[in-house]
């Protein structure tokens, strides 16, 4: 996972895309499973899958957050203004933090619910409930919080992806490519410079 100054380590890249796929999948799953018209047996099982993949995401997101706080930084692409750099840093920190907070809030929903449905991750690990008081009001509070934070992360992911696509197609630098592990251009040089 060690990152060089101008490229991401393989671990960072895998973690980034794995968490991205998990979060998008969980957003779709979370939305579908909470529709009132859904078959109750299917709903029960979708909730359990959601909680299992959600706990996995929490685990990976904690690793990723610690790594981004403690690990080496990859240099920002050249040609970015001061404000752009600060904005992109802030966005990445916010995304990494929300990736931890959103599943934590989901865990709180399951923990505060008086239904006391166990979180039996992948039918293998009995994840204990967080020490929260159980009540309908507590469950409703965490449910709203979890939903709002989850849809905020979706909005931020949209901005983040738009920025990545802008770098690739607009500025033609290697910001997207290096997270795909394909940046071939020398560090910091926009890929356009390689084109005759």
């Amino acid at each position: 996972m060690r990152d060089a100054a101008d490229r991401y380590g393989r671990g960072t890249i895998i973690l980034h895309w794995l968490i991205a796929v998990l979060i998008l999948g969980l957003l779709v799953l979370g939305f579908v499973m909470t529709r009132p018209w859904i078959d109750p047996a299917l709903q029960f099982s979708l909730y359990q899958w959601h909680k299992s993949f959600g706990m996995l995401t929490l685990l990976l997101a904690v690793v990723r957050l610690l790594h981004s706080l403690l690990g080496a930084r990859v240099r920002p692409p050249t040609g970015l203004g001061h404000l752009e750099r600060r904005m992109s840093k802030a966005m990445h920190l916010l995304l990494a933090t929300l990736a931890v907070i959103v599943p934590l809030a989901g865990w709180a929903v399951a923990s505060a619910s008086p239904l006391e449905i166990p979180t039996f991750a992948f039918n293998l690990i009995d994840v204990p409930h967080l020490p929260l008081q159980k009540s309908d009001a507590g469950e409703a509070f965490w449910s709203t919080t979890h939903a709002r934070l989850a849809y905020s992360i979706l909005a931020l992911v949209a901005l983040h992806s738009t920025a990545a696509l802008y770098h690739h197609y607009g500025r033609r630098d290697d910001v997207l490519l290096r997270m795909l592990g394909r940046a071939k251009t020398p560090a910091g040089k926009p890929s356009t410079e390689c084109v005759p």
């Binding site: 078959d39 109750p40 047996a41 029960f44 008086p114 239904l115």
Partner: peptide, 13 residues
């Protein structure tokens, strides 16, 4: 003692 559980038990599930 839990209306949501009762309704789930009555449902097609």
């Amino acid at each position: 003692g839990q209306a949501r559980i009762d309704n789930f038990l009555r449902s097609g599930a």
